[in-house]
Design a protein around this nucleic acid. Sequence first.
DNA 1: CCGAATCCTGGTAGATACTG
DNA 2: CAGTATCTACCAGGATTCGG
Lengths: 215, 215
Amino acid sequence: MASREYGQFCGLARAMEMIGERWSVLIIRNLLIGAQRFTDLHRGLPAIPTNVLSARLKQLEEAGLATRRALPHPERAVVYELTDFGRDLEPALIALGRWGARTLAEPRPGEVVTAESIAMSFRTTFQPEAAVGVTAGYELRMGDFTFRLQITDGALAVGIGPHPSPDLVIERLTGFPIRELITGGKTPDEVLRDGSVRTEGDPALLGRFVEMFRF
Amino acid sequence: MASREYGQFCGLARAMEMIGERWSVLIIRNLLIGAQRFTDLHRGLPAIPTNVLSARLKQLEEAGLATRRALPHPERAVVYELTDFGRDLEPALIALGRWGARTLAEPRPGEVVTAESIAMSFRTTFQPEAAVGVTAGYELRMGDFTFRLQITDGALAVGIGPHPSPDLVIERLTGFPIRELITGGKTPDEVLRDGSVRTEGDPALLGRFVEMFRF
DNA sequence: CCGAATCCTGGTAGATACTG
DNA sequence: CAGTATCTACCAGGATTCGG
């Protein structure tokens, strides 16, 4: 038996052979946002050594989860992108992230919060059954980060950066109002009245937001 | 930052810190069947070094996923068992196993098929929406292994060993008829007529079986 | 500056032997 | 039965270097 295999004819064992090494699932999490350059990935995973990032990308490519592509001319850059096969891991990563999030209390000393980890938290808290038939675009402005959440016919797409045509913009002014909305710590009325958020657009969509994103 | 952490405030990163090391998820997969002794785990994971199994069990216990318990007197033995927290990983493991199973073609040279990996495959192929309201007990006899699948009000429980009061017994006689039923390679009528399976009990439950277990 | 490759160190896993 | 001990080999972490 080759040394990095599990010696079992089992789907779960095969999955762990492909993504079980250190950093792999976090790289995939970040690629779920979209194509990324080596440097983007390194920025989003500041603690990964560059040689390990390099090795993992090569492995993910060999396993058919990601592709490496050189952008056409003026943009001479290399981007990494998930294949359909790699993207099919999303439900499993959401389930894992939801399980792990139960242990999140406070950031540990030295821990960072990245845009990609916040984007993942929108995926893990999304409640498809509360979004059936919904189509709406949200822009969330949270200090340094802005996210676009597009729900199209009940399906969620998460992006980093402004939304081109949001139905509702939710802007954080103070504290952590969006986390409080999602955990149920505060109601939409409360965060509007205490001045921790400001909205632009259809105000009814804030109530819909807390129905669709719950933890 | 401690060396085995990811330095990110993220549920997925926390999950990988707890179960991301080699062998951990396969140990959890085997514990999903029920309490197991050290030797049971080693039998179900023949390729794991005993020192690594020992270390992983200690870690799982420290992380609150499993407990170590000495059985009362005459049975002087130690069993390991998942906590509720550990058992909550089941949906994530099912999603991962389902994803990985897409790459399963033939066993690689030297690979073994264990009872626990087959039990996992029943979990990954189970279709809850096809089992809504169903209550039925199956006993599956597949050569060396026998499994009990109890569906109670749409919820599946998988065990290794005979079913105390099966509504239908499905016995493999030749080939891989149960896999063929689940993948759609053969219909219930076909496997009955070609003599690859024999059943005892309510024959209608064989049709129900292929509706509830699909890949 | 981007995307690595190289080198070194220390820690983790694999293999096997051994013990209460 | 349920592990521990020991040794080796490999992998990850960290820093530096290098070609396009």
